[in-house]
């Protein structure tokens, strides 16, 4: 049994690598993009607000799987082609930036308007007001929702199988079919659990780090 698992490991680990790549790249790009989405949504420029709302509606109103399929299989029909991996990342980033954007918008809107007044009378520019006053308070507010979204992302990464990327779940399924065994799927499950456990701990630490103010 133990030996069987050891034999499975190389394939599963290379699947895990793909999963982690999709996960981290999506996070690193979609979080800053989400801030821009939130700012666009909150801006006073009406056409921009409309465009951002449309974008959010489409991204949240259709399945992520469909978005991946459209980008990888659909866009080539109109002459835009991506490799598998960039296509997957693009779909994930667009989708997650919309969700993060809405979370950040909620966080920004829940900050007392008096904070803007205080910053203004002290001479802060809008940019400084955002980075020095609003952003740190927003982060504290949105951390629990972001943690949720990040855990969801870990599991969503399994969707990249559809463009033929060999991520963790796919590696497990292949081994399971080949060996007619449940074990690979259980090992895959344990991997996901370990990942989400680590992330939960990281976010707990972050929330503690932001508990110095109220």
């Amino acid at each position: 049994m133990f030996e069987y698992i050891l034999r499975l490991l190389p394939a599963l680990l290379s699947g895990l690598e793909v999963t982690l790549k999709v996960f981290f790249l999506t996070l690193v790009i979609s979080i800053p993009l989400g801030i821009l989405v939130a700012l666009g949504r909150l801006s006073k420029i009406k056409p921009l607000v409309f465009l951002v709302e449309l974008y959010i509606w489409v991204m949240r109103g259709t399945p992520l799987l469909l978005q991946i399929v459209v980008i990888f299989f659909g866009l080539p029909i109109v002459g835009i082609t991506f490799d598998r991996f960039p296509a997957a990342i693009l779909a994930f980033v667009l989708n997650y930036a919309a969700y993060f954007g809405e979370i950040f918008r909620g966080g920004i809107e829940s900050i007392d308007k008096g904070q803007y007044d205080a910053a203004k009378v002290l001479g802060f520019t809008p940019a400084k007001t955002f980075t020095r006053i609003i952003l740190p308070q927003m982060i504290k507010i949105v951390l629990p929702s972001v943690a949720n979204e990040v855990i969801t992302l870990v599991k969503d990464t399994s969707l990249v199988y559809v463009v033929g990327l060999g991520e963790l779940l796919r590696a497990g399924k292949i081994a399971s079919n080949r060996d007619a065994s449940l074990v690979p799927l259980i090992v895959v499950g344990v991997f996901y659990l370990a990942l989400t456990a680590v992330l939960t701990a990281v976010f707990q630490k972050l929330e503690e780090r932001y508990s110095y103010f109220q």
Partner: peptide, 26 residues
């Protein structure tokens, strides 16, 4: 200088931080 009725201190900054923020950053 304006002191607001509900003060509008910056909750994420210490007392000292609240006071030195504008002189330094603005």
């Amino acid at each position: 200088g304006l002191v607001f009725q509900n003060f509008n201190l910056f909750p994420h900054m210490s007392v000292l931080g609240n006071i030195i923020e504008a002189p330094i950053n603005v």
